[in-house]
Design a protein around this nucleic acid. Structure first.
Length: 796
DNA sequence: TAGATCCCTG
DNA sequence: CAGGGATCTA
């Protein structure tokens, strides 16, 4: 299963339904098994069919002659695997929007070779022709499926004459859905045109003012657009039997997008430059819509709530228009859902073993209140990037800027430095940063360090010996670890640096980290309206992912999101990963991915209702509606980032504290322990650094003065210009968008001195020598600013 | 004994 | 950062 070739071993014709994975409430027998080839029921109540019905008239999974069309991209490969998973489980398709199994005439590309091959031959020219072929195939598929639909209904009448009434109802429902689809379609087109035009205008400007060396790329884009437009128009004409929404929303093949994206990348750079109001970025939904592709652009940043969702100047009109359109879209969808729900409840006898509608199978949900569900759905459907929750709360569309400003103000205040600093400041005045101002010549007695220890002290304790094991454990350092980067010596022979980057760093207090490996080519992420993202992400969710080995799940840990203070209402959504983990892997690569955002905490298959909460899944992270609030059932990179920032204040937060400061997380045992573990890891890193630097300081003191001095530790400081601070900041505040509170520096000071003291006094020979230090540090937790009580990740 | 934490490992 | 064993504590 893990090997790519395994993905294609199963040659069984597969039916790719648009239905969600089996939910716990799904009852076998209600839905056709994929391998039977039976015509699927026209109506599929349970699970999460709603959106698929919306997206697909008739609400039925479609099989095209046993083989389904697919875009010839590596996306297909992933589909294969997922399909296998589905089949092995005997379940149904899981609502993938894309189709999976390669048609025989296309041939299946095997494993990595196939992937490489595809990459090679996907020149821009080929892209256009392939796209055209895709369009043709789509049309062909539509015709076939329509024919088959007709046949199925014919046969159905003969066989099921007695069920005429129910059939009529289904027909009616079909019509409703069709109508809804058309409405959605029209609205979507409007949005596209609005955004597309605007964007094209921008592009035009850039092209004119640019270096003019992008003609080819521009043409390529236009060509793609033309092709897509052609298809789009045809879809319009024939009523869009195919999964047009999914097709168009998810855009063309990832490779198409990849190439386009590469072209766009340059054009975006200057835009991103403007957008970059702070480092660390955010999930940047710039609304870049080009051609058929709506792209989620990770290159820039969005500050979400935390900066009030500041938009670029001059986009206000467009935003308003987009808002209006989204409202309209949302209400249209809601109306449809309402109707569908009504029909569901009215036709509940259709599937007695399955509670009607996706919402009714929750055990504790008393009553199938369509209105209520509609309300829930409204909340989900009307949440767009533009109207992201104000202040991370549940304000939906049409939020007031004033309120947002208040929130911002509050957050800004809340995240200010902790006031409790006086006692430390006094100390700080007495002791200059020991190592910061120190001369590189550490052998000279620093005036602040005073004379060397009396020689008797030098031998009074084993730890004072240079050969003491506790001092010899860390590899020798060639420079004082607490020195600011600029003053540190550069000793390439040194195998152990507190931070290797420090040697090469300049006067900047935050020197650039070691040069990262060349970033992989930016891969496009589908940019969907948030409501659509939610819908799709839910549709695309695979319960099988939960059981995949980490190597198959790692794309859930979409690391780029980690650096982006994404809006809580726009959770890190590695939709790309859902579309194709290999893409995500290529995009993010490396061990970074493995950082454990375990998205499967509480993850359920395909979403649904449980305990009165509607939940969705995005990128393996479930989130649900609870008390009018969205609650994540797993921890996202954003949560990790927030936890790290929280560490500046609380090293030992209780689980209750965590619950307080992560209001958007639905805590269960798994999530709680994960977060506790996070903090445990944070502490571990913290103490390791403290010990390391303390040992280094002791060692230096021995070298310099012959022995550490009693009281010398009081002069140890973790100034903002020290290497230790840099390392800590890099670890807990990597994007450096948050100002490290003074209090944390003080606590670090204390910890460093405690370690220093313990080491030079030889207490470190006691196996439990750190315990006392832990106890001290434990008491130094300070209140976490109120800003952290809001969902999302604070900056500032 | 369960839960928290530490410690080590990958 | 997560997993898991060891240790500690209530």
């Amino acid at each position: 299963m893990d090997s790519p070739t395994d993905l294609f071993e199963d040659s069984t014709p597969q039916i790719h339904t648009f239905a969600p994975p089996l939910c716990s409430t799904d009852v076998s027998g209600v839905h056709p098994q994929p391998s039977t080839g039976r015509p699927p029921p026209t109506f599929r109540p349970p699970g999460f069919p709603l959106i698929h019905h919306l997206l697909q008239p008739g609400g039925a999974p479609r099989r095209i002659g046993g083989q389904l069309h697919t875009h010839n991209t590596n996306l297909t490969m992933h589909r294969h695997q997922e399909d296998r998973n589905v089949d092995e489980d005997g379940g149904e398709g899981d609502g993938r929007v894309e189709q999976g199994t390669e048609g025989g005439d296309e041939g299946v590309m095997d494993g990595e070779d196939g992937l490489l091959g595809m990459k090679k031959r996907h020149s821009d020219a080929n892209l256009a022709s392939e796209w055209s072929q895709d369009v043709l195939r789509v049309k062909r598929m539509k015709l076939e499926s329509r024919r088959r639909d007709g046949e199925t209904e014919e046969g159905g009448r003969k066989r099921e004459g007695g069920r005429e009434g129910r059939r009529r109802e289904r027909e009616e429902l079909k019509e409703q859905l069709e109508e809804a689809r058309e409405r959605l379609q029209a609205l979507q087109e409007k949005v596209w045109r609005a955004f597309g035009e605007k964007h094209m205008t921008e592009e035009e400007k850039k092209r004119r003012s640019g270096n003019g060396n992008r003609g080819e790329g521009a043409v390529g884009i236009i060509e793609d657009e033309d092709i897509a437009e052609g298809m789009y128009d045809e879809e319009d004409i024939d009523g869009g039997e195919m999964e047009k929404e999914s097709f168009s929303l998810l855009s063309a093949s990832p490779f198409d997008n990849f190439h386009n994206h590469k072209r766009r990348e340059e054009q975006q750079k200057d835009r991103e430059g403007r957008m970059e109001r702070g480092r660390g970025g955010g999930l940047h939904l710039e609304g870049v819509m080009e051609g058929v592709g709506l792209w989620l652009d990770c290159g820039g940043l969005v500050r979400g709530d935390w900066d009030g969702g500041i938009e670029e100047e001059g986009e206000e009109g467009g935003q308003k228009f987009a808002q209006a359109l989204k409202l309209e879209l949302g209400s249209a969808v809601a109306r449809v859902i309402d109707r569908v729900l009504r029909l569901y409840t009215e036709t509940a006898d259709f599937a007695p073993s399955s509670p009607p509608a996706a919402i009714s199978f929750l055990p504790s949900d008393t009553g199938n209140d369509g209105g209520r569900e509609r309300g829930v759905w409204m909340g989900l459907l009307t949440r767009g990037r533009g109207e992201e929750k104000m202040g991370g709360k549940e304000e939906k569309m049409g939020g007031h800027d004033g309120e947002r400003e208040k929130q911002l103000q509050k957050m800004s205040n809340g995240s200010s430095l902790h006031p409790d600093q006086s006692h430390r400041n006094e100390q700080s005045d007495l002791a200059m940063p020991l190592v910061v101002q120190r001369s590189p010549d550490i052998r000279k007695a620093h005036p602040l360090l005073g004379p060397p220890l009396p020689s008797h002290l030098n031998h009074s304790h084993p730890n004072l010996s240079l050969h003491h094991p506790s001092l010899s454990r860390p590899p020798p350092l060639s420079h004082p670890p607490l020195l600011p980067p600029a003053s540190q010596s550069k000793d390439p022979s040194s195998s152990f640096h507190p931070s290797s980057s420090s040697s090469s760093s300049s006067s900047s207090s935050f020197p650039a980290p070691p040069p990262p490996p060349p970033p992989p080519p930016p891969l496009p992420l589908p940019l969907l309206h948030y409501s659509m993202q939610q819908l799709f992400s839910r549709s695309l969710h695979h319960p099988q992912l939960a059981h995949l080995p980490p190597s198959r799940k790692d794309y859930l840990n979409s690391d780029p999101f980690l650096e982006f203070p994404s809006h809580p209402s726009f959770p890190p959504l590695p939709l790309l990963g859902h579309l194709d983990p290999s893409l995500a892997r290529h995009a993010h690569g490396g061990r970074e991915r493995e950082r454990g955002i375990r998205g499967d905490g509480g993850m359920r298959g395909g979403g649904g209702m449980d305990g009165g909460e509607l939940y969705l899944t995005a990128g393996g992270i479930s989130f649900c509606q609870q008390g009018g609030r969205e609650m994540y059932e797993g921890l996202s990179p954003c949560h990790l980032k927030k936890a790290k920032l929280m560490f500046f204040y609380a090293r030992y937060p209780s689980s209750n504290t965590l619950k307080t400061y992560f209001p958007d997380v639905k805590f269960n045992r798994c999530v709680t322990s994960q977060m506790i573990k996070w903090f445990s890891n944070f502490r571990e890193f913290f103490y390791i650094q403290m010990e390391r630097f303390a040992r280094q300081a002791v060692r230096e003191a021995l070298i310099r003065d012959g022995a550490p001095r009693v009281g010398r530790e009081s002069q140890l400081r973790v100034g903002r210009d020290t290497e230790l601070y840099r390392i800590l900041n890099m670890h807990y505040n990597k994007s450096n968008v948050y100002q490290v509170p003074e209090r944390f520096i003080e606590v670090s000071d204390i910890a460093l001195r405690e370690f220093y003291s313990a080491i030079w006094t030889g207490r470190d020979s006691d196996p439990c020598w750190k315990k006392g230090i832990y106890k001290i540090i434990c008491k130094l937790d300070s209140p976490v600013p109120d800003a952290f009580r809001l969902p999302g990740c604070p900056v500032g």
